[in-house]
Amino acid sequence: MRVDLMRRLALVVALLVPPAAFAAEAEPLAADPALEERVMQLSHMLRCLVCQNQSIAESNAPLAVDLRNQVREQFVAGKDEDAVVEYLVARYGDFVLYLPPFKGTTLVLWLGPVLLLIGGAGWLAWRLRRRVTEAAPPLTNDERARAAALLDGTANTSQEPRS
């Protein structure tokens, strides 16, 4: 058991090492770790325009590197997060934001899922309520007698029941 556990641990370590080694190749961090933390935090919320499904924090496209440097420089110059976002939106539009602003053109984007959820829940409630009210009608005397016969085992099973 112990050997097995050790093996598993070794596997976990082996799987963790390559990304760590890869990270070492990334650009040198700024001297100030707190600043770098801010840069990365904001970069994760910004879309890389070259490889559109990555944030500029994840992408190593030259433009993403440039934009990260821009973010860092502007932080150093004393700008806050909002000012940097404004700077980028002025150049690349709302598309750079992974969290698009709530406005006319993004109304469907923001409200669509909520409307779908409400609509779906409403439809489901309607269906369920209808199912309750549409309970099966009570058995007629004839059907009751046949059911009793079936349960007693006296019914002629070769004969198909007529409905």
């Binding site: 325009l49 070259v50 030259p62 433009l63 440039d66 934009l67 150049r91």
Partner: peptide, 13 residues
């Protein structure tokens, strides 16, 4: 050379 003006123009490709 450093792509700064490109960024100002919103160049991404």
């Amino acid at each position: 050379a450093d792509g700064r003006v490109g960024i100002d123009f919103g160049v991404y490709g």
